[in-house]
Design a protein around this nucleic acid. Sequence first.
DNA 1: TTGTATGCGTTATCAT
DNA 2: ATGATAACGCATACAA
Lengths: 340, 340
Amino acid sequence: MVSLKEIAKRAGVSVSTVSRTLNNYDDVSPETRERILRIARELNYFPNAVARSLVKKKTYTIGVFFGNKMNSGFDHPFFLDVIAAIREVIGNAGYDLLIFTNKKKERATYTTLCRERSVDGVVLLLTGEGKKKTEQLVELQNSRIPCIAIDIPLMGEKCTYVESDNYGGAREAIRHLIGLGHRWIAFIGGDEISKTSYDRLRGYQDMLMESGIGVDPSLIQLGYFSREKAREAARRLMSKRPEITAFFAVSDVMAMGVIEGLEQMGYRVPRDVSVVGFDDIREAVYVRPPLTTVRQDKVGLGSQAARTLLQIIEHPEEPISPVTLPCRLIVRESTSEPRH
Amino acid sequence: MVSLKEIAKRAGVSVSTVSRTLNNYDDVSPETRERILRIARELNYFPNAVARSLVKKKTYTIGVFFGNKMNSGFDHPFFLDVIAAIREVIGNAGYDLLIFTNKKKERATYTTLCRERSVDGVVLLLTGEGKKKTEQLVELQNSRIPCIAIDIPLMGEKCTYVESDNYGGAREAIRHLIGLGHRWIAFIGGDEISKTSYDRLRGYQDMLMESGIGVDPSLIQLGYFSREKAREAARRLMSKRPEITAFFAVSDVMAMGVIEGLEQMGYRVPRDVSVVGFDDIREAVYVRPPLTTVRQDKVGLGSQAARTLLQIIEHPEEPISPVTLPCRLIVRESTSEPRH
DNA sequence: TTGTATGCGTTATCAT
DNA sequence: ATGATAACGCATACAA
């Protein structure tokens, strides 16, 4: 509303003098400086970020893309924690967050939306649907837009990702089950394409091999990160292979589905069958039985993503690389020794 | 990156012709139109929203303010659901969401931040801390910035709010307890200033009066929307007034605290004492015992807020007024008949 | 120390 | 049907 011109007029100086004063240049006399600052304060002046962005080509805005499903709220399993951490870090650095929601752009891609809004950087917090837009992801990865992805293996000149140690976390989960005495351990995966799910599968397989138990492919099913699909997968598995004593589901939501399916069939968890999840979402501690699960460091993921992104933006010369954060097995009450 | 000027040069026309073409003006010949559109497509042109905003004084951006507490994620009890609904509605209308996070502006207020970023409107999704910045809220309310508050009674020329029927919801909760046979019903309020908490208190009092039970002020305590504070309040209350058979806490988080306190003292819920919450947060269904609570229509709150805000923005001439959405009592397992 | 001029990318007004 | 020009609010190179 009140502009530099307005202040300049009242102070009897030129616009550029006002601009320099307000930007703390030191080439302005103490008297005029005082006068200008006083007037600016009186008029309650604040610079127009839009105009400034136009000339400086810097918006102090970080874009965010994430899943689209409506009814379940944001469908990322721990959107809230990750975004809170991101917000904290980038806020301290002087940036705001732009959440892309505009549905009116049919032909737009992640890249064009970023360019259009001139965001300084972008974070990708996608779920199933979004992760499948491979062409768009590649385009963004190859663009010069500073980009950090969570759980998606993108690598480019200004693009990298953060993830949990999914492989190691899965190993711990299986080690735990084996230690308890389990030998017939089923695996409920996510989908065919996600690296996240794949790494957890590898951890499961490797641990079983190393323990001399071996991998039985028929114990491996996909649950597509859906509670219902996981429930049905568990029921199918259990009726075909009643010797199973434990399930490892690669998300807590699916673990909850597995437990549901098991109980529908008359099994008790963990007395008859043990179940381990992944993520440690908020509900995990409340659910019955409280879930043994592999905790992802959500705050760590978010703040690391933010820090890496800021580094790409503000120190473009420095090399970048993906970062992997450790997971931790949280033993609660959904696992116990196998029924004999 | 690629601008109107670039396209103009390649097409051999002026910038203004390109602009008119791209904005679907009808005063451009079919031939040049085709040529320009083709080149624009080839160059993968997208307009620079910043430049456009500067001249049109419209950003297609809705600002969002909310609580600041870090560790607990966003501290609004149902931030996620509300924001998801808002996102849906404003996204369909062609707007994006700007989440204010910048901590580097000490002297800034809600109003100045909005002006600085030139947002077209703003939604207030505040918790305890934010709600207490009364001067700032008044300033915003009196500004000409289109504004919608959730659960805060702001009213101005371009400012209003949405809330749940807190009074009615509280009445239902108490009616339920009375119907079960309870007579000694304690109230765990939020704080002294929030209208939300106050309306629920009124519902509690009125229902008790209408039922001929009457209100005992010593059964009323504040829990400041904190689990721990509510837990301690419940313990104090219960040791002084062991005749209490039911608690009504004005948030689920506090209800969980109350249950915790009760169980620490050796009471069982609901066998010995019944507990009713408010909100119906996601955890409410998983917690033990599953919480009887007053459900707020989170999606309704969010989408109503968004619709109202859009109306203020796009139809400034029409009158505005606050809207109140109905609540619904969800009976689960934390309530039963009183111990004799 | 201060002012003038120019440009950022776009839209809009007014000629032609 | 098209182009020249100004304007949005600010920053900056250069001149004075």
